[in-house]
Measured scan of single mutants.
Amino acid sequence: MEVRTIKVFTTVDNINLHTQVVDMSMTYGQQFGPTYLDGADVTKIKPHNSHEGKTFYVLPNDDTLRVEAFEYYHTTDPSFLGRYMSALNHTKKWKYPQVNGLTSIKWADNNCYLATALLTLQQIELKFNPPALQDAYYRARAGEAANFCALILAYCNKTVGELGDVRETMSYLFQHANLDSCKRVLNVVCKTCGQQQTTLKGVEAVMYMGTLSYEQFKKGVQIPCTCGKQATKYLVQQESPFVMMSAPPAQYELKHGTFTCASEYTGNYQCGHYKHITSKETLYCIDGALLTKSSEYKGPITDVFYKENSYTTTIK
């Protein structure tokens, strides 16, 4: 009895394709271990004539594949690729409408935090270190965002349907971005203890939790000093293409032309909904596939993004 075979390709990165001759009487799992086709788990399936010449994702289970996976995804987590594939199996079914010149995501599976993050990423200057993220990001900007969303979920250790947080998501993504040249110098002034300067680099240099107003941050924000008295913390120097200011959701007025974009969060910790506000020729609110415009805006804002380049204080 002759062994019926077909020729397929296996890959971990969709760049390096490895030619395989597979036995049609055995499952993919018996031949390769966990195997995925377009995100779908085909591990328990036997090869079919229609699979001839198709590319299958496999887990990096030998040295060659491990090197290829690390170079593309910059992670050695053995569960990463499987999590990416199972997320992709959902995100490829989502709709990605162009809204006001940006790629958004039609609401499904509690994905409003991903839509808000995706919209924000198209408006701030950011370059990702893992080629996987950078490639998928370019495709997302062009309207094909399924891979990018699935990668975000995998890097953030999230599953489809789980509630997510924009600030946490951005923080994970910033860790995989090139923020080497970003720098922030802060000064804390206390009447009792004097003053202390701190220099922050990388992710810490672009994120701040405690106030939404970048102007206020430049002037000074009140913080408790270690001595128990009130101290003032203010920005001395900022070198970065953008800054992200966050605070627990509270009524906040966004003035046209003073910011790049913002995240609105309605609801409580267990259950809520994100919308995205962007400042173009007027203010726009993007909620999944829905767009509304207004000249002014007041609502429960939790993150505001500002364009920056270089700032030095005039406070002496």
Rank of each mutant, 00 (worst) to 15 (best):
W94T: 00
W94H: 00
S171H: 13
D109R: 06
Y274G: 01
S246M: 03
D165V: 09
G210S: 08
Y155R: 03
N110R: 05
R4I: 05
G228A: 05
Y113S: 02
Q270E: 10
T226I: 12
A247M: 06
Y172F: 11
E239A: 06
Q237I: 05
V12H: 15
S263I: 15
K183T: 10
K293G: 07
F56D: 00
V206K: 05
A117D: 03
G33M: 02
A262C: 02
M244S: 07
N268F: 08
L114F: 01
Y28F: 10
K280T: 07
L254I: 07
K307N: 14
T260R: 02
L65W: 08
Y57R: 03
C227T: 02
P97I: 11
A140S: 05
H51P: 00
L118D: 02
A177Q: 01
L290P: 06
T226M: 12
Q222F: 13
K158R: 10
P78M: 07
Q123G: 03
T120V: 06
T258K: 10
C149R: 00
L179P: 00
K44R: 11
V8R: 01
I124K: 04
L254H: 07
T292F: 14
F128T: 02
Y252E: 10
G257K: 05
V203S: 09
Y72A: 14
V236G: 07
L17S: 11
Y234E: 02
E253A: 13
F9M: 11
T302W: 06
M244K: 02
E308A: 07
G29N: 11
K219P: 05
K298M: 10
V12K: 13
S171V: 12
P131E: 05
V206S: 06
Q222H: 07
F259V: 05
E264W: 04
D63T: 14
I223A: 14
G53Q: 10
K158Y: 10
D23R: 11
A140V: 10
L37H: 10
E162D: 14
T120D: 04
Y311S: 04
Y137P: 01
I286A: 06
K7Y: 12
E215V: 07
E2I: 09
M85W: 01
S279E: 08
P130C: 14
M26G: 06
K44E: 15
Q195R: 13
T159L: 12
E204G: 10
G202Y: 01
S181I: 07
K106Y: 09
E52V: 10
P60E: 06
H48R: 14
L212W: 05
T192K: 13
S279D: 13
V160L: 01
I286K: 05
C190T: 04
S263E: 04
T292K: 11
H48S: 11
V188P: 03
Q175M: 12
G288I: 00
G228Q: 04
Y252N: 07
R83N: 09
A177G: 00
Q134P: 00
E71Q: 10
K255P: 06
S79T: 14
Q230K: 10
L81I: 08
T258R: 11
A145M: 05
L291I: 15
G29L: 06
T232V: 13
K219S: 13
N309P: 05
L186D: 06
D23A: 04
V206M: 06
T199V: 13
L173R: 02
L59E: 14
M26K: 15
R139H: 11
S310E: 11
N111L: 01
K218Q: 06
S310L: 10
L65F: 09
I223H: 12
A87Q: 06
P97F: 09
I301M: 04
L212Y: 08
V58E: 01
A108W: 06
G161V: 02
Y28S: 00
C193I: 05
N178R: 11
V22Y: 00
T313K: 09
E308Y: 06
A250K: 12
K183N: 08
K293I: 10
A262H: 07
T266I: 13
H18L: 09
V206Q: 06
F70P: 03
C271T: 10
N16C: 06
A247Q: 13
G228E: 02
M207T: 08
C156V: 05
K191E: 12
A40C: 10
S213V: 14
E253H: 12
N100Q: 08
E52Y: 10
T312I: 15
F305M: 07
P131V: 01
L65Q: 04
C271E: 15
L114P: 02
T10H: 14
A289Q: 13
M207N: 07
Q237A: 12
A142I: 10
P78C: 04
K44I: 13
A145I: 03
K218V: 07
T199E: 14
F70L: 13
R141A: 08
G272L: 03
A142E: 14
D135N: 13
V236D: 04
T76L: 11
C190A: 04
T266C: 15
E144C: 09
P47W: 02
G39P: 03
T64C: 09
S171E: 09
Y208D: 11
G194C: 04
H256L: 12
H90M: 11
V304W: 04
L118R: 00
H18G: 05
C182T: 03
E2T: 11
C227M: 04
G299N: 06
M245E: 08
T159Q: 10
A140W: 00
T11G: 00
K255A: 08
N268D: 10
K307Y: 11
A145E: 00
V189A: 07
E215K: 06
Y96G: 02
